[in-house]
Design a binder for these strands. Structure first.
Lengths: 129, 129
DNA sequence: GTCGCCCCTTACGTTCACGTCAACTTCACA
DNA sequence: TGTGAAGTTGACGTGAACGTAAGGGGCGAC
């Protein structure tokens, strides 16, 4: 199964991050690995969280924004007002992402066009202007 | 027309950035406004560039990556090898963006699902658990 | 036992993308 | 003629997200 516990090194190799990064995320309360003595051990849930963290980063979110999002994925919310707030900020994040999606689609179309034009220019240059 | 020259303040108001930001972009060679005496004046092309800069930032690109992309939009390339390199890095950026688009779509679907689940939980809490 | 390796904490250093402040010029206007 | 608004350069400050170096514990291999 995938519910094996992983050492920090295994995590780093798997997700291409440094130990410093994982400890840093822990200090910012984005990860909560178990401790076997002094050593950290990461389980399936930790890995899922890390996946979401790295994904969030690629979309340009701050670690704090990501931390708030993670609360949504982690049903530790027993408090009503807390849960309401979590969902509200999640909606904002969702709106951000939807806007970004539209912009991204437009930018991709645009860039494809520019590349095509660039290539046309390139061929002109090659054919000896 | 939109080919009016704009002062730094007009630019700031229009694009919601600070003068410091515009001067910083200039120092990093992302913008090249004219000089009327000491003062900077931004034309249509500068505004187009700024739009692309801000867009790129929202996608999580660094200013240096954006600077390289801008070369593509600016046909000042008279050099063959230079133009080839520019197009090559533009292709990489495009690939990044396409990957990001897929990921983003998946993340949005995912987040919507989580929000839905969160709301279900919320109603359970509200109905008095 | 001691060597190497992996892990730990603490703490200062670094990069990016600006913010902030000081001191100066230039120009419109009272 | 000053005065204030808007612009300039230059230098130092700042927050986020780590990098890096120093010093130390534990543990299997030789």
């Amino acid at each position: 199964m995938s519910d094996r516990l992983m050492t920090i090194r295994e995590m780093c190799d798997t997700y291409d991050v440094t130990p410093r990064t994982l400890r840093f995320y822990e200090s910012r309360e984005l990860l909560f690995p178990e401790r076997r003595g002094q050593h950290r051990l990461y389980d399936r849930k930790d890995r899922a969280r890390l996946t979401l963290i790295l994904r969030g980063k690629r979309f340009g979110f701050s670690l704090e924004q990501i931390r708030q999002l993670l609360e949504l994925y982690d049903p530790a919310e027993r408090n009503l007002t807390q849960a309401t707030a979590t969902i509200a900020t999640a909606r904002e994040r969702l709106a951000d992402m939807e806007r970004q999606q539209e912009e991204l689609a437009a930018a991709i179309t645009d860039l494809r066009q520019q590349i095509a034009e660039g290539e046309t220019m390139l061929k002109t240059l090659q054919s000896g202007a």
